[in-house]
């Protein structure tokens, strides 16, 4: 697989506020890449730079090995699905989708065929003459996707396209989008602040914060091996505990020494210890293990979310078995469940 897009040391500021700080990133053909981060982290700005809607201050963006600095959005082989869809209110569904093809002055029959194909792909057959104002959120979303895809872009940019949909619809669309991308073989760059969305859909996740890329990796890597405290706390719920790496494969926290699989730290280096809530099992109190008291329990449908107080620190544990508030328990986890991160400020 070759590279479709190369972002090379890109910096962008608005009114003295640096939104993107020396960002570099390469994206391969047919990849589904997600830019993930809280609002204001620069992910949308990066997308708009790729689409050609903003100009960068420093650096280069290469699309299929060509520097696109002076290429306007209408000349780029990139299409965008906008956050609030940006459907043309004066055009019906058909004319919205046909917009790009009509500009290319394609023959009428070809346009008809292409639009109908797209409507089938996004499951909106029979809606072609509808006014876009009469569509539901999910339908508008599909029209926006069809309007972009009909131009057969090599790269599709999606700016939080599922944000306005309700949970059930969002999950359906996540699946459908992934399917579409696989079938069409188009590179997708998807912007979201929803970590679950990022993890379910992507081949690769780019975690961003405050204009910097924090971590790039497969969803599994990002989830299991967060590189710093930001990644860990942003991706999923985590227990982050202060600890000391006494030596390779041994970490001390809550006053107890634990075997682990991490190495390569200095002896007695202070570290952050990450343990996922679902990796902890609650057992009867045991002197050899961390002990605590159940302070809260909430039923979450699939599992219980149980809070356990240990030495003034609250641990979150996901368990399918209920406990009672006030129960004394111990926390059990294996060496593989412990993830060690360097302190972010060090």
């Amino acid at each position: 697989m070759s590279d479709i897009l190369k972002i090379d040391h890109v910096t962008k500021s608005f009114d003295d506020k640096v939104v993107l700080n020396n960002i570099s990133l390469t994206i391969k053909h047919n990849e589904f890449v997600t830019l993930l981060g809280p609002s204001g982290c620069g992910k949308t700005t990066l997308l708009r730079l790729i689409g050609g809607f903003e100009t960068l201050d420093q650096g280069h963006i290469y699309f299929e090995d060509e520097d696109v600095l002076n290429i306007p959005p209408n000349k780029r082989k990139v299409n965008t699905v906008f956050q609030h869809y940006a459907l043309f209110p004066h055009l019906n569904v058909f004319d919205n989708i046909a917009f790009g093809l009509k500009l290319k002055k394609q023959p009428k029959e070809e346009i008809n065929k292409a639009v109908m194909n797209m409507l089938m792909l996004v499951k909106l057959e029979g809606y072609e003459w509808r006014n876009v104002d009469t569509l539901s959120g999910g339908q508008k979303q599909r029209v926006a996707i069809a309007r972009a895809l009909v131009n057969q872009p090599n790269l599709l940019l999606l700016d939080e396209p599922l944000g306005a949909l309700d949970l059930k619809l969002r999950q359906d669309m996540q699946y459908e989008l992934k399917e579409m991308q696989r079938r069409l073989g188009i590179t997708f760059i998807f912007v979201t602040h929803d970590q679950e969305e990022a993890l379910t859909m992507s081949d690769r996740v780019v975690v961003m914060n405050e204009g910097l890329i924090q971590q790039v990796g497969s969803p599994q890597d990002i989830y299991n091996e967060p590189i710093n405290q930001f990644s860990a706390s942003f991706i999923g719920e985590s227990n982050i505990i202060d600890g000391v790496m006494v030596t390779d494969y041994e970490v001390v926290f809550e006053g107890i020494s634990h075997p682990c699989v991490d190495h390569g730290f200095e002896n007695n280096e202070k570290v952050d210890v990450v343990i996922r809530p679902e990796d902890i099992v609650l057992i009867k109190p045991d002197q050899q293990m961390i002990q605590g008291v159940v302070t809260d329990i909430i039923f979450k449908g699939v599992h219980y979310e149980i809070c356990v107080m240990v030495n003034d620190k609250e641990y979150v544990i996901h368990s399918t078995r209920a406990k009672h508030i006030g129960d004394k328990v111990s926390l059990k986890f294996g060496p593989n469940d412990i993830h060690i991160m360097r302190k972010s400020d060090a």
């Binding site: 959005p73 209408n74 990139v78 965008t80 043309f88 500009l103 972009a148």
Partner: peptide, 25 residues
């Protein structure tokens, strides 16, 4: 403004964007 960006994104130059989007709206 997103409608104008959408038109550009779909291949419209400045003139097309004006005639097909801005003027009718």
């Amino acid at each position: 403004q997103h409608l104008i960006e959408a038109a550009r994104d779909l291949g419209a130059n400045g003139f097309d964007t004006f005639v097909k989007v801005i003027l009718p709206l």
